[in-house]
Every structure is written in structure tokens, then in C-alpha cells.
């Protein structure tokens, strides 16, 4: 890494190279008894955005690092890496999770959807279009997580999953600004685009209930 050639590498290349060497460096799993700190490798196969992917990974690799550093799907972002910010939110078997707090090897057979699987620049997902229209971001770093989370939030409301602000646990659910704000609380936006994010999601939901605009 001290070689001057490395100076031409981008920051992303450097980080990827570091993560990759962490994943494959050291002795193979069979030699690990002699060196307790050597990585243990394991195989996992899952579907990412409809495509079957098989990886041999250090067991420590999070789903987030598998997506970003091994599959080069860098749409999913690493913010806090501790499940506090939501930038790493992806959808696994229809449910949103923090990919930073999940081991890749625990996703055998799972179907994973990342922001790259929701839409493309020439074919935006309605939530992506709505975020652009309503200016639901400034720097954009949290946006992929916000959009994956929002997609799952709308599905959760449809499926009748209540929230902390649902007034009556036995009533039908409504899409209100209050509901969206509560359900999106696991996605932090340090630029503070929250009110525009709620408007964007509300529009895709078919409009917020009356008197509940953000």
C-alpha cells in the first residue's frame, strides 16, 4: 500500500481493496486451529435483485459488505455500521433490515433487493421519481436506505402492521404523515430533508389522509 502507484487509486478503490484483503488474507479455514485469529471462510448463495450469487466469504462479512465490496453494489450505503442510521437498509424476503447488522452467511437462499433492484436511471421506481420531484434529499447519502425503507413501509401498512402512533390497534391503518414519520424513524437524514421525504412517500401511497400533509 506504500507504493506510489496507489496514490492514483480512488478512495473507494482503496476501501474496497482493504476490505477484500481482510476477507481473503491469512490461512484457509483448515489451518485455523493453529492460528485462532485466522479468518474462517464459508459459502453462501442468495439472490440479489433477481440474480443468483454465490460467494465464499470470511464469516465476519456483513450483508452490507458482501453487497458493496464483493458484489460491487455500492448503492447501499454504510453510515454508522451499527444499525442506528438506516443508510444500509435493504429488503430481504420482502422485509426491510439493516444490512450492517446481519451476517452474509446467514442469508442462504434469501431474496435480497437493493436500491439497484428497485429502479434504474432510465426506469425509476415511483419512490425514486417522487424523491426527485419533492427534493427528498440534499447530499443523497441516506437516500437509497430511505427509499428501500419507504418501499417496505408502504408494504407494511398494506399488510396491516401497526406502529407506535397507530391510535387503535384493531382499526384499519391509514397513511398519515404521523404514521410515515414514526415508521421512517430508523432512517436518519443529517441534511434534514424529512418533510420532503414524507411528502414523497405520501404521494406514492396515493396521497396522505386529509389534514395530514407534512
Amino acid at each position: 500500500m506504500a507504493d506510489t502507484e496507489d496514490l492514483s487509486l480512488s478512495r473507494r478503490d482503496l476501501m474496497a481493496a482493504g476490505a477484500a484483503s481482510a476477507a481473503i488474507a491469512g490461512a484457509p479455514a483448515t489451518a485455523s486451529a493453529a492460528t485462532p485469529d485466522a479468518p474462517h471462510l464459508a459459502q453462501v448463495t442468495f439472490k440479489v435483485n433477481g440474480q443468483k450469487r454465490s460467494l465464499t466469504l470470511d464469516t465476519r462479512t456483513t450483508l452490507l459488505d458482501a453487497l458493496r465490496e464483493h458484489l460491487r453494489l455500492t448503492g447501499t450505503k454504510k453510515g454508522c455500521d451499527h444499525g442506528q442510521c438506516g443508510a444500509c437498509t435493504v429488503i430481504v424476503d420482502g422485509r426491510r433490515i439493516n444490512s450492517c447488522l446481519s451476517l452474509a452467511v446467514m442469508h442462504e437462499g434469501d431474496e435480497i433487493t437493493t436500491i439497484e433492484g428497485l429502479g434504474a436511471p432510465d426506469k425509476l421506481h415511483p419512490l425514486q421519481a417522487a424523491f426527485i420531484k419533492h427534493d427528498g434529499y440534499q447530499c443523497g447519502y441516506c437516500t437509497p436506505g430511505q427509499i428501500c425503507s419507504a418501499k417496505a413501509v408502504l408494504d407494511e401498512i398494506k399488510a396491516g402492521v401497526p406502529s407506535h402512533v397507530t391510535a387503535d390497534l384493531t382499526d384499519a391503518l391509514k397513511v398519515t404523515a404521523e404514521e410515515l414519520r414514526e415508521r421512517m424513524s430508523g432512517n436518519i437524514c443529517r441534511c434534514g430533508a424529512y418533510s420532503n421525504i414524507v411528502e414523497a412517500i405520501g404521494e406514492v401511497a396515493g396521497g396522505l389522509s386529509k389534514g395530514e400533509m407534512a
Binding site: 437498509t89 426491510r96 433490515i97 439493516n98 447488522l101 407506535h164
Partner: peptide
């Protein structure tokens, strides 16, 4: 938290669960 029996008969449990963590964390 979303189970119909829990919501109807053990509301305090549903409410406590929904007051904790985030949607992403509760899913896991």
C-alpha cells in the same frame, strides 16, 4: 406486535414492542 391475538388480548405487549427500536430492527 402485529399478531391479531396479541393486539386484541395482550395490547400492552403490542404497544411495548412498537415503542422499541426501528422497523428494520423489529423485523430481525
Amino acid at each position: 406486535a402485529a399478531d391479531k391475538r396479541v393486539r386484541k388480548d395482550y395490547g400492552v405487549l403490542s404497544r411495548a414492542l412498537l415503542a422499541g427500536a426501528s422497523g428494520q430492527l423489529r423485523n430481525k
